[in-house]
Design a protein around this nucleic acid. Sequence first.
DNA 1: CTCCTTTCGATATTTTTTTATCGATATCAA
DNA 2: TTGATATCGATAAAAAAATATCGAAAGGAG
Lengths: 224, 224
Amino acid sequence: MKTGANFVERKDVSKATLERLPLYLRFLQEESGRGVEYVSSSVIADAIMVSSVLVRKDLESVSSESGRPRLGFRIARLIADIEKFLGYDNLSDVVLVGAGGLGKAFLGYEGFRSNGLNVVAAFDKDEKVVGKEVAGKPVLHLDDFDEFVRTRKIRIGIIAVPKRAAQEILDKMVGAGIKAIWNFAPAPLYAPRGVIVKTEDLAASLAILAGKLYRLDMDEKEQL
Amino acid sequence: MKTGANFVERKDVSKATLERLPLYLRFLQEESGRGVEYVSSSVIADAIMVSSVLVRKDLESVSSESGRPRLGFRIARLIADIEKFLGYDNLSDVVLVGAGGLGKAFLGYEGFRSNGLNVVAAFDKDEKVVGKEVAGKPVLHLDDFDEFVRTRKIRIGIIAVPKRAAQEILDKMVGAGIKAIWNFAPAPLYAPRGVIVKTEDLAASLAILAGKLYRLDMDEKEQL
DNA sequence: CTCCTTTCGATATTTTTTTATCGATATCAA
DNA sequence: TTGATATCGATAAAAAAATATCGAAAGGAG
């Protein structure tokens, strides 16, 4: 057999590190907002609930400046470094396909902007929503998708359509030049090499949580 | 310093395995629906985009029956085993706090049900939404939260409120006896031991995707 | 100025997760 | 019946990620 997923994942930081960086960033921004100038790895560690060694290791890969003994890291610099590494310095435009419940929620979701992301428009086929605005963002007809994306050179797309339509939308996105896709349809999708797909299975995520709870209960019973 | 996160995570399966099981389950259910009776590890592997060895290893931890050479695994049995392991055999009731955009989306999200989860009601303070129904689920006032949860013995909660209210809601949930919390507010929350919290940072997730794309671009430029 | 404490950063170690390999076995076809 | 082969499961190896340890440096206290 062949070994599966062989996605784009260059650069030297681990996937796990990549997932922690935004958490560090958020914490640092908060501290910075409160006037703090320096922060030690253990403070970050406690806030994020990881070990301080891990924090230092993570920061090492992105920081342009060493931490200073007895003081810690310069927050301002750290923020700049992480943002640069994550690509937040150029606000990324994002398009969304599917203006149902979840789609609308994204249009209004606070916090994208602060992470350097900008959902510029939604697309749908349903005449009932096309032409309207949600949270100030236009809902356009899917027929206009291709041109819109091409002319704006948008490279990030969110899929929030029913399962059965998801693959079709993905293909459409790829055809329009989109390079990174965040998929919320509960279906595995196939994309050509060079296109990054992250499927976010909400049901599965919640299920994992429920599963943990379940097995926790079991353990408790065993102990009695 | 102290080593960080020390959460509930007993039983022998790895976290990574735990995250793949629902994906296997979904795939198996689809196949089963199409009348297939047996499936080999490589077929699952291809669908989920992992290696077949990994699939066998994962299944080993939960399956009550060995796979059969040349045939594969009995789908029906596998589904039952995974569901049992994940705790899907007792439909878990879930409550949601925050009936804004994201909250409403969850109330209507297809796919929870099929994963053994049942969002029974939403709670909010906003009089404009309280008393209404969304996707057939009632939106109740937050004042009734405690009683509702206690009498129904609900143990899973979803937080979909603005950041500033999140910790308060978490405390309320814990007070009402909830043991597992899925948090969508972009804030780190603190919970007592024994309560599982999974913070789902949508902005960060999208940011990670954008970051990958960004660094991919960088690499391409370097190569030219 | 000197000592003390905090914190870093480098290295080594452990743990976890994934992949590779290979003999055994059960089904299918002739 | 017999042989070919897809597929499993066990074991070993590799890779990846997290943790432990410790000397060095830098700021603060006396």
